[in-house]
Structures are given as C-alpha cells and as structure tokens.
C-alpha cells in the first residue's frame, strides 16, 4: 500500500515537471535534453537503416541470393589479390545520408516485388533483368558512378601502372570527364542481360 502511494506521488511529480517544465529546469538544460533525445532518435533510425544495409540482409531473399549473389561469387569483386571484397550495399546503397534515404524509398518497390513475385524464378529474373539493370545503369550514370568511386578514385589511379589498353581509354574518356565508370564497366559484378542497342562507353561518342 505504501509503495503504491509512493509510486503515485512520483508519477504525479513527474507529470508536473513534464507539464510545466520551465518552472523546474533551466532553458539551457531543456535545450540540451532535446538535443540528446534527438541524437538518440536519429541514432536509432540510423541503426535500423544500417541493419538493412548488410549483404546478409540482401541475400536473405532468395531472389537476391540465387541470382546476383551466385554470379558475384565468380567475379573479381568477390576474390582478388588485394583481399578487398565488395558487398551488395557497397555498390547499391549510397553511403551519403540523403542519397541513402532516397534509395530506401525506392527499395520499398522491392518489397512490393517480393509480395507479387516479380522475379521469384530464374526465368522471371532473366526476363526482367534488362529492365532492372537499366535502373542501376541510370542511377550510376546520374551520380557519376559514386559507389564505384567510394573504392576506386580517378585521382588515385596511377595509369602508368595500368595496362596500356586500360590507361589509354581512361586517359581519353575518363580523365576528360566525358564518360563515367559505368559507361564502360557494365557487367563487372553480374552477368549481363541482352545488350542489343547498348553501345559500349568508348563508341557512343565516336558514332554519335
């Protein structure tokens, strides 16, 4: 009984503070409290976002595991002499905040796709692949291959250490800003869809 009244009076006291805060606490303290609460909220949001930003999350869907992931395993971005491994979010989710949220909004489309089974078999995936790849190309083209550049930067590229074939094209098209990575390096992580009508990066300008 005594405990009950104690709790009741405590709640009442708290409520008084809550309802008319400035009587009991300084404005400075409140601002600080608000700030801390904001940080906590923002942090929690961020953490939730981080959890969906891992490869394990991506390949928890069989659509992603059986197709893109299986194919990625064959490529240089999975095993290489440097031991650096690119995972799905490295290439597919921008690291910057605003971009990240924009991408997440778009990702809701994938949940929709999951529910409506747009690519739940290999056949359906292959049929739809050109369209999906097209979205990725457009995105990377629009952000100047931002994700690639998070790991590879044109500034740090020593073209004298590259093979002449690569150096030549990088010099003519990349360093002049005429083209971006994805124009020339399509299909570096997955098999390509039907490429009829898609010109390689180095010819588009020559043909016009």
């Amino acid at each position: 009984m005594a405990i009950k009244t104690a709790i009741c009076s405590m709640i009442a006291a708290c409520w008084r503070v809550f309802a008319r805060p400035s009587v009991h606490y300084s404005l400075g303290f409140l601002t600080l409290g608000g700030f801390i609460a904001g940080v906590l909220f923002w942090g929690g949001f961020n953490t939730a976002l981080e959890a969906t930003n891992t490869e394990a999350f991506c390949i928890s869907c069989h659509e992603m595991r059986d197709n893109p992931y299986e194919e990625l395993k064959q490529t240089i971005h999975f095993t290489n002499r440097s031991g650096v491994r690119a995972s799905c979010p490295d290439c597919h989710v921008p690291h910057q905040w605003t971009d990240k949220i924009a991408r997440k909004m778009q990702a809701s489309k994938e949940v929709w796709g999951k529910i409506f089974r747009t690519i739940d078999t290999r056949e359906k995936f292959l049929d739809k692949r050109r369209e999906l790849a097209g979205h990725e190309w457009d995105r990377l083209k629009a952000n100047n291959s931002l994700e690639c550049r998070n790991c590879h930067s044109a500034e740090s590229m020593d073209i004298t250490k590259q093979t002449p074939r690569a150096a030549k094209l990088h010099e003519t098209f990349l360093f002049t800003g005429e083209k971006t990575c994805i124009d020339c390096h399509k299909g570096i992580a997955h098999r390509l869809p039907d490429m009829t009508g898609v010109e390689p990066g180095w010819t588009a300008s020559a043909i016009k």
Partner: peptide, 15 residues
Amino acid sequence: RDYQIDLNINKCLTC
C-alpha cells in the same frame, strides 16, 4: 577475365 560471350553479348566485339 569475366568477358561474357553468349547470346546476350559478345564482349570481344564491343572493341
């Protein structure tokens, strides 16, 4: 390495 040659694309011919 990883140059695709199939019905979808012939990487060699892109050059």
